[in-house]
Amino acid sequence: MTTTPRTGTRWLLRRPTPDAPARIFCFPYSGIGASMFNRWPRFLGGAEICPIQPPARENRSREPHFGTYQHLAAGVVEAIEPYLDRPFLFVGHCTGALPAYETAVRLATLGLPAPAWLVVSAQVAPHHCPYDRFLDLSEQELTDELAELVGQRGAQPDPMLIELALRVLRLDLGASRVYRREEPVRLPAAVAVVRWTDDPEVTDAQLRPWQEYASEVRFVDLPGGHYDILDAPAALRELLAGLAATTDGTR
């Protein structure tokens, strides 16, 4: 693998700055891309937000889908390796937590730097997958869900854009449907598990099995619902900035 930055930043929303003391790599959930983080700030404290852009969506819509979270992790590792020269975190919400975890596993397997923290939000542990209420929804129900979410974000649902999003969502749900770890693979990183207090999709009991994935696991309750993460609420910003500020990069 190369150790110098290349033009392959299609995996990132933007090329990381060279002087940030820490980086936070953010993984989008199913059916969306790096635009999920459009309302997030560029920096949290001194840590730079670095959204991951998977293929088959947004500016990468002409590229083949990644197929599995393991394949996605392989592409991410190759792309971000030049930027692992300082402390960093991984953040994944809902299904985005799964490729974030797989990327951390791949880094450890290759002997590359590990994230100081893996932050997983509203997602059951890999050995309890597949778990996603969208997996049991019909085509019309998925369409209605997407339209409702667009409306909640203050926009008017456009049938053509909904159909494009539905195409990506179908492919991403295929990756979720085949994903499962038979048993936990522990990470050298610490793990922070976020539960949103108004989120009915994942309970505290369903999140507890993450405690098997690292020697240091922190469980955090944040106010809000399942999609409030899109606005980077103050409590989440404080959590991530604090984790980034306290890491010394030795994990």
Rank of each mutant, 00 (worst) to 15 (best):
residue 36 M to N: 03
residue 230 L to S: 00
residue 193 V to T: 04
residue 26 C to N: 01
residue 89 L to S: 10
residue 235 A to K: 04
residue 187 L to H: 09
residue 104 A to P: 02
residue 92 G to A: 03
residue 235 A to Q: 09
residue 54 P to D: 05
residue 204 D to V: 12
residue 77 V to G: 02
residue 53 Q to K: 05
residue 70 Q to Y: 03
residue 38 N to K: 13
residue 92 G to P: 09
residue 170 R to F: 10
residue 97 A to Y: 04
residue 242 G to F: 06
residue 234 A to V: 11
residue 141 E to C: 09
residue 75 G to K: 03
residue 234 A to P: 02
residue 185 V to N: 07
residue 248 D to F: 01
residue 170 R to I: 13
residue 62 R to L: 15
residue 248 D to I: 04
residue 171 L to V: 11
residue 31 G to A: 11
residue 147 A to G: 13
residue 205 A to N: 15
residue 157 P to Q: 08
residue 120 V to Y: 07
residue 121 S to F: 03
residue 21 P to V: 02
residue 28 P to T: 04
residue 248 D to L: 12
residue 8 G to I: 08
residue 167 R to L: 11
residue 214 A to H: 06
residue 240 L to K: 05
residue 232 A to E: 00
residue 36 M to H: 02
residue 229 I to D: 01
residue 189 A to L: 01
residue 149 L to H: 14
residue 185 V to P: 00
residue 20 A to V: 02
residue 238 E to W: 05
residue 21 P to I: 07
residue 63 E to M: 02
residue 3 T to Q: 14
residue 86 R to I: 05
residue 201 E to L: 06
residue 23 R to N: 02
residue 68 T to D: 11
residue 87 P to V: 07
residue 233 P to H: 02
residue 11 W to T: 02
residue 244 A to G: 05
residue 161 L to P: 00
residue 181 R to T: 02
residue 91 V to G: 01
residue 157 P to L: 00
residue 19 D to S: 15
residue 61 S to A: 15
residue 229 I to H: 13
residue 29 Y to Q: 05
residue 151 G to E: 13
residue 227 Y to K: 00
residue 67 G to S: 04
residue 65 H to P: 04
residue 23 R to Q: 10
residue 19 D to F: 14
residue 185 V to C: 09
residue 223 P to Y: 07
residue 138 S to Y: 10
residue 55 P to Q: 10
residue 238 E to I: 09
residue 28 P to G: 08
residue 64 P to C: 02
residue 137 L to I: 04
residue 34 A to D: 13
residue 22 A to L: 02
residue 176 S to Y: 01
residue 200 P to H: 10
residue 103 T to K: 00
residue 99 P to C: 08
residue 106 R to W: 08
residue 7 T to L: 12
residue 112 L to E: 09
residue 155 A to G: 11
residue 105 V to C: 15
residue 8 G to R: 12
residue 240 L to Y: 03
residue 73 A to D: 10
residue 108 A to G: 11
residue 26 C to P: 05
residue 220 V to E: 07
residue 190 A to P: 05
residue 163 E to L: 13
residue 147 A to I: 00
residue 168 V to Q: 11
residue 116 A to I: 00
residue 239 L to P: 06
residue 136 D to H: 11
residue 64 P to M: 07
residue 23 R to D: 07
residue 42 R to V: 13
residue 8 G to Y: 06
residue 211 Q to I: 08
residue 249 G to Y: 07
residue 197 T to L: 15
residue 179 Y to C: 14
residue 203 T to N: 03
residue 251 R to W: 05
residue 43 F to T: 12
residue 100 A to G: 08
residue 32 I to H: 11
residue 147 A to L: 03
residue 169 L to A: 09
residue 224 G to M: 07
residue 5 P to E: 09
residue 109 T to S: 14
residue 100 A to W: 01
residue 54 P to H: 13
residue 86 R to S: 07
residue 133 R to T: 11
residue 85 D to M: 12
residue 84 L to P: 13
residue 163 E to N: 14
residue 76 V to N: 04
residue 247 T to E: 09
residue 245 A to W: 00
residue 88 F to C: 07
